[in-house]
């Protein structure tokens, strides 16, 4: 095991972590700020990935992926807003239980519909020509597509930072994370805020789904796979903390990639072991939210 191998692993881990971040950041926002637990968040990711494969099959790798990157997150946004305003809104009153049931049911329904519509066989699309192949840095081969994932995620993270730090929505979200009870009391339209944050979260998952599609097989198991990891990331990063989620996502991605160098049975056990360890040592994750345990 030499340094170059470790470096390659770290880059791969960061790229994987970047995808985790895109899915987990939205989830941590709606959960941490607005108390909405959406088990079906991974369904947005899966829908986006399938939609991307369809567009690429129709329009070719270059144009198709570009179109997908623009159109698919918007479609997912519309879907999420429709779900929020027609279904989720009705169950907030009862606390998490209605949400757990609703989103669990949704997860099953979307999975069944995707299997019926797109088929159960794994799909695959190729990356655009200019993103195929690799670049060599310090003698390490890094896949161009992985770097593209990193670049895209970087841009999205910048936008997210801008959104949270500068916009009114961002201020409200931060306020909600700090003290959710105050928000309604000072006359903020929490209802509209929830819809907006759900939309933002879906767009993030949608982007992740599109850029993940050319990297590997797209099938009906990826929804649950990604959402379980996203929950682990959130827990490690601290509920409601976008930047905590970023650190945790990279940590999980890197730990998963590096662990495959030493143990020969895949990385998923590391994610859950890490999650259990963090919760054992710090029962509310790295970032403790004031006033809530």
């Amino acid at each position: 095991m030499d340094g170059r191998l470790i470096l390659a692993q770290v880059v791969a881990g960061v790229a994987t972590g970047a995808l985790y971040f895109l899915v987990a950041s939205g989830l941590t926002l709606i959960w941490g700020a607005l108390g909405v637990v959406n088990l079906a968040h991974g369904s947005f990711f899966m829908l986006a990935a399938f939609a991307a494969t369809t567009l690429v099959h129709q329009l070719g790798p270059g144009l198709g992926l570009l179109c997908a990157l623009v159109v698919v997150p918007l479609l997912v946004l519309v879907f999420a807003v429709a779900l929020e305003t027609t279904l989720f809104r009705r169950v907030y009153v009862g606390g998490i239980w209605g949400q757990l049931l609703l989103s669990f049911g949704l997860l099953l329904v979307v999975n069944d519909l995707v299997r019926t519509g797109f088929g159960a066989v794994s799909r695959s699309i190729v990356a655009p020509d200019f993103l195929q192949g690799f670049v060599e840095i310090f003698g390490v081969r890094l896949a161009k597509y992985q770097l593209a994932i990193l670049a895209t995620t970087g841009l999205v993270a910048l936008y997210l930072w801008h959104l949270l730090a500068r916009s009114r929505t961002g201020r409200l979200i931060r306020a909600a994370v700090d003290d959710p009870a105050m928000l309604g009391a000072v006359g903020v339209d929490v209802k509209a805020l929830r819809t907006r944050v759900m939309g933002i979260a879906a767009v993030l998952a949608g982007i992740a789904g599109v850029i993940a599609a050319p990297r590997g097989a797209v099938n009906t198991t990826i929804d649950v796979q990604i959402v379980v990891i996203a929950f682990a990331v959130i827990v490690i990063g601290g509920l409601g903390s976008v930047w905590g989620a970023l650190v945790a996502a990279l940590l999980v991605g890197i730990a998963e990639a590096l662990s495959t160098l030493v143990i020969d049975q895949g990385g998923e056990v590391v994610i859950f072991a890490l999650m259990a360890l963090v919760l054992f040592v710090m029962p509310t994750g790295f970032q403790t939210i004031a006033g809530r345990d």
Binding site: D2, L5, A8, Q9, V11, A12, G13, A15, T16, A143, Q146, A212, R215, G216, T221, I222, Q225, E256, A257, T260, L261, D264, Q265, G266, G267, E268
Partner: peptide, 21 residues
């Protein structure tokens, strides 16, 4: 070399690099 990545893995970089090495 022997590599047993998890079933349904999303990243094979480690296996690929280890096999090449």
């Amino acid at each position: 070399v022997e590599e047993y990545p998890k079933f349904g893995a999303t990243d094979y970089t480690a296996s690929i690099n280890k096999v090449l090495a």
